[in-house]
Design a protein around this nucleic acid. Structure first.
Lengths: 331, 331
DNA sequence: CGGAGTTATGTAATCGATTGCAAGAGGGGG
DNA sequence: CCCCCTCTTGCAATCGATTACATAACTCCG
């Protein structure tokens, strides 16, 4: 009665060879003679043998896993990035472990940054503390980044992208534009705000009215309420929001109060999440190459794991996507 | 020059105790005398020792990981369920590994179902083949399920929920209602369609016009196009869609063609994803308790891992959420 | 026919923890 | 003073694979 999981010695015994040979068939088949290989493979089939990963990991000192730390799993923006990562990691034998840095039931995020838990780490949350992250595991920062940490970054040029967005609004004739920012002390928020300010300044226009936000739908709705609260004459005729989610919230809120987009206010988002092309009006926005960001980040991590320790950044291009939510003021 | 990672024997040596004692301090502190414990803890601090998970896993035969198999990571519907799972798993020391069953770069999904890779498996994709899944790992099915597989299911009553939705439309006075279904051969699609049919039949109304869909935004848009293609007199005055994503696509498409919701057509979704309460009009829908679904599934899995092998289902209650997208016909 | 070179396989150490068993120390009761 | 019991701690086997090194068999060539 052999109720246990068969192990490598069971296979070896059945095939009449040593465990070393079975192991070779498993991980380096070509160095085993064809006949022996056949024998071993047959024995594997008969016993229903399955490799024990924990044992292998212990021996070869790798875990086969890569951890991605995202600030918010429920944000669809990240899912596609993760899909891009998985697409390059899976074929070379890595599992992608996803952890939400916000929603952690007590255990420190840093337990994920253990060399014995994972072979590499991709961080998508710029607000994590630098200490503890650095010097442990091959590391890549994607989208957001942590100031002062030395690791390859894969990102877009956020300032430039924000300038493109605001330039577009200015080009349509808008003179008073508001910016709904992302969370405070977030590198993305700061870069996008800086870009918006710079574009306006470059055209000799006043600095934007800045409304607070945190990338979430609900904060976009609040920004909409804030906009509505302004005396109509003072309302900016265009609003550039640091995320599409906020743009959705904003549009929803002002539309509920009878405001027409883009007639009464032009709205520009950021990210180009799938949904916004289906809204009414379809949202003008900045497209981030999410899948590509994920792929590239994963590739850089694989490089790092292989020992490549250059720290250079990768900047991916964005695209201005013009749809129906922006138009000349009062049109 | 000790450049290696310290291991348990290094700590033991420094503290002047055996490795057994160090191990006890790590996993069972109370059986070690206070003085020795202090010594060992000090040595751990000095050496910067960190436990090697692979070694522990090998020895105690657990991996500390739980795998969730989702059909589509980019669907925000799932993220919140995953967050619920992580919230119960993390505190008891389990990592949540997320894998997308569609976007897999070659490697079989079943490699995840290895006892040596994970301690348990939560499947959210009802289209996976039953063979291979069963009999390997403690298993729980959530939301969707695989017919003929014996495992606890955590889900809602989809047929009942669909009936609630359609009853509501009928109550508003609609007589011709369409249903945009989910993917073929999907248990959810079938249950929701059955519910819609049943509700109509119960009121002596004709069976719904069924438009094909696959839960995606884009398929909702196509359904919108199909609805528009009907002669106005034959158009159903209400549409019940099997997912909110499709409802967004549907509304976007018909609005682009000048159709007013709910004046010209009432729209009812399913899921209550965060976004739909912010749309214009805000969507009436069926709320699934996503977070709770995730928590419950994780709890059932923990039970299973502990050896509880009851297979009973857990049915969580849904909620009819009435917003602005449904109204009496022609209002 | 002997020795070098090549190929296939086996032996045994190793990865870094956990834990059953045994033994030593100290306390209490008879 | 001896025996038994409890509390700590150490010894050494163990988890299940990988792989450096040794060895055996075979080929090839002068």
């Amino acid at each position: 009665m052999q109720h246990q999981r068969p192990k490598i010695v069971d296979v070896a015994r059945l095939a009449g060879v040593s465990t070393a040979t079975v192991s070779r068939v498993l991980s380096n088949p070509e160095i085993v003679s064809a006949e022996t290989r056949r024998l071993v493979e047959e024995a594997i089939r008969q016993t229903g043998y399955r490799l024990n990963q924990a044992a292998r990991n212990l021996r070869i000192r790798r875990t086969g896993g890569v951890v991605a730390l995202v600030p918010n799993l429920s944000n669809p923006f990240f899912s596609q990035i993760l899909a891009g990562m998985a697409a390059v990691l899976a074929p070379v034998g890595y599992n992608l472990l996803v952890a939400d840095t916000r929603a952690e039931g007590g255990r420190s995020i840093l337990t994920y940054a253990e060399p014995s838990r994972a072979d590499g780490l991709i961080v998508l949350d710029g607000t994590l503390p630098a200490e503890g992250l650095t010097g442990r595991l091959p590391l890549v920062l994607a989208c957001e980044w942590i100031p002062g940490i030395a690791a390859p970054r894969v990102k877009i040029d956020n300032r430039e992208a924000a300038m493109m967005a605001v330039d577009h609004l200015i080009g349509l004739g808008h003179r008073r534009v508001a910016h709904v920012a992302g969370p405070r002390r977030n590198v993305l928020s700061e870069a996008r705000l800086a870009g918006a300010e710079r574009a306006l300044a470059a055209h000799g226009l006043p600095a934007p009215i800045v409304l607070p936000g945190d990338f979430s739908l609900e904060s976009g709705r609040r920004a909409g309420a804030a906009w509505l609260a302004l005396p109509p004459a003072e309302r900016p005729t265009a609003v550039f929001l640091a995320s599409d989610a906020m743009a959705c919230g904003f549009i929803g809120e002002v539309q509920h109060h009878g405001v027409m987009v883009p007639r009464d206010v032009s709205v520009m988002g950021f990210d180009d999440i799938e949904l916004v092309s289906h809204m009414t009006p379809a949202l003008s926005t900045i497209r981030q190459p999410r899948e590509a960001l994920g792929r590239k980040a994963a590739q850089r991590l694989l490089d790092r794991i292989e020992g490549d320790d250059r720290d250079e950044d990768t900047i991916l291009p964005v695209e201005l996507v013009l749809r129906a939510s922006t138009a000349p003021p009062g049109s």
